[in-house]
Design a protein around this nucleic acid. Structure first.
Lengths: 374, 374
DNA sequence: TTGTATGCGTTATCAT
DNA sequence: ATGATAACGCATACAA
């Protein structure tokens, strides 16, 4: 109701309650002082950038010291109730918000970690996120979450802005350790499932090799020999699944070579078409190991389309152990990874990083979870 | 390797590289200066509380100004590479970590919003979270995520600690507006799907009524009349689904009453047993409307167990439009809600709240998504 | 009860 | 290339 028109001091701050800024319907910069008057010379400006409303602003308008405002805001006892009420009114009207930085500087208590994932909706990550949140919550830490939306180019910018706001960062990254380094500016970093070693950052690793081996041996034990594999592009560990598959196959003298490994897109559709290609090339194939559960489910849908009975005609093994694997019928046999635990491990690494250590990589091994597609 | 034994200044800071603190395996307080010497009088103390290692500490040890250290840490160009290397070495050895509070104080403010969800793993929420992250990211805001783990008692404590750290809070809450108020202490709050009106907080609402109506009408159009409903306990809108169901049923003179509504636990198991109960009570039932997709999928699994053909013998309609509904065979017909959009709307409300408005509730209507269980 | 003066750790400006 | 100085917003000890 009241346009900005009151007495403005050299600081650009309004001096009287009756002249305080209008606080209704004014757009984003409302919580900031944007009086249209610069500080030094009183010249009008049209810049949108305002100043944050501070304790002192409230104090000035309320006609008390900033100290009294602090007391009022924090509900200290040594203050006249009437004064407090008046101060709080002004604070509300000025839309004052305490700065967490100003506070944190004086009472450095709350640890905040940044959490970076490629995609919140991919059913793999929510469990990981849950593990991080849980482990962080147990320490009374807070978690700033960010998603790259599967866009590696966002990663670095994200990291830079996150880095300024948090005490440490954990997450999945498609860049290497070294590429990441300049963007975190000294903020401790935990790289999950990132492949290589690092001399500066902490790592949490998944023993993919153990997993693939377990899955393949399971198929072999079930009597399968003509086994195909659906692999996918992956930023980290580019060839681990494929190589392990081929190694184990050779060791067991399976009638299988590189031509039994097809590369698919990392999606259900990718899994489906990869299965079709595999089946077309090897009609006698009786088992498939998939890059992950999403891809495996896609492959499963292809079996339905093609009229291939699972597991009778073709067995299927996924990777990750997503709970959605239970929804298909028969439920998906998979190499299960405790994604929640993965998140906990990442937070543990943060803990040690903040303690000044550079801990050795934490390694988590998946294990076979036999459901019904084998 | 080097115990703390070197020359200590009146500030308790070590003066020479050769006397720097041991930085291996010393526990959490390592990143802090705990020289055992107090600042003022040089008296030894045994307190564990040390001082944080600051830029100035690094500067002193490296023999440069704190400004130069800042340049080195942040990789600014105006610095001699040799100096930078030396400074970084010292910083690492002293376990220096930048203070996000110090930084935040100086750098342009970043708006941070708190996001509270009951459960990150429930497939409903990741999409909502993604919407919030996306909308927030578009404004260059950051998101602090927290989960109540379906425990309402955690909610208030969570809110109180979050409130200190963020500029606004959005989320799902099981407490009422009024119960929440004291815990957020003036921090703008957006309540999603919370039922009642609020005079102090912003709301995002789902038009459940429209959804239920659409689902039921769809079943009626398909010729179903003996239709059951699986309802669930819900903190918000306790009876909307049930009441709407009964109203529409009456309006269309369906041979259906309260006894066709069973209350189940909000889970797949709950959906399954609810379906069994419904089917036992009404063997001639040809259609079911479920509280949500999770419950509907549970009901679907019960149909398999009971040998009930879907949709031939019994049609099934879910609610929420989760993508996992596509995994069952036939895929689940559902009342689809754009959960991502819900997150965006919540962030929009924050925007207006920060602008000083108290916006009217934002309402999102679900729409029927016919897949194949009807 | 209220006000004044410091200092928290960092970055920016401006000097050298 | 480097350093001195000045903010930033807040809480606290201390003075009035």
């Amino acid at each position: 109701m009241h346009p900005v028109n009151g007495n403005v001091t050299a600081n650009g701050i309004l001096t009287h309650l009756s002249d305080r800024v209008n606080y209704e319907n004014r757009g984003r910069e409302l919580a900031w002082l944007s009086s249209g008057v610069t500080e030094k010379d009183g010249t009008a400006t049209s810049t949108r950038a305002g100043r944050r409303v501070t304790l002192r602003d409230v104090a000035r308008v309320a006609g008390v010291s900033h100290q009294t405002v602090s007391r009022a805001i924090n509900g200290k006892s040594e203050i006249d109730p009437e004064t407090q009420r008046r101060v709080l009114d002004v604070a509300r009207e000025l839309r004052y918000r305490p700065s967490r930085f100003g506070r944190g500087l004086v009472q450095p208590d709350v640890v905040t970690i940044g959490l970076v994932v490629p995609d919140v909706v991919n059913p793999f990550y929510p469990e990981f996120v849950a593990g991080v949140i849980q482990a962080a919550g147990g320490r009374d830490w807070q978690v700033v979450i960010a998603s790259t939306e599967n866009d590696p180019s966002r990663e670095l910018a994200l990291l830079r802005s996150l880095g300024r706001q948090v005490d440490a960062i954990v997450g999945y990254f498609s860049h290497t350790d070294d590429e990441l380094e300049p963007y975190v500016a000294g903020v401790p970093l935990v790289i999950v499932d990132g492949g290589l070693d690092s001399t500066t950052h902490a790592l949490v690793r998944v023993d993919t090799q153990v997993g693939v081996r377990a899955g393949l041996l399971h198929l072999i034990e079930r009597g399968h020999r003509r086994i195909g594999m659906i692999d996918c592009f992956s930023t980290c560990d580019p060839l681990v699944r494929r190589q392990t598959f081929l190694d184990v196959a050779r060791a067991h003298r399976l009638p299988v070579d590189e031509r039994w490994v097809v590369l698919g897109e990392q999606s259900m559709a990718g899994g489906a078409s990869a299965f079709e290609a595999l089946r077309a090339a090897h009609p006698d194939m009786t088992g498939v190991l998939a890059f992950n559960d999403i891809v495996a489910i896609g492959a499963f849908q292809a079996t339905r389309k093609l009229g291939v009975a699972v597991p009778a005609e073709c067995a299927l093994v996924g990777f990750d152990g997503l709970s959605i694997g239970e929804l298909i019928d028969p439920p998906l046999t998979t190499i299960h990874l405790d994604k929640r635990r993965l998140g906990e491990l990442a937070v543990n690494q943060v803990d040690r990083l903040l303690a000044g250590e550079l801990p050795p990589p934490a390694v988590l091994s998946p294990h076979l979870l036999v459901r019904a597609t084998t």
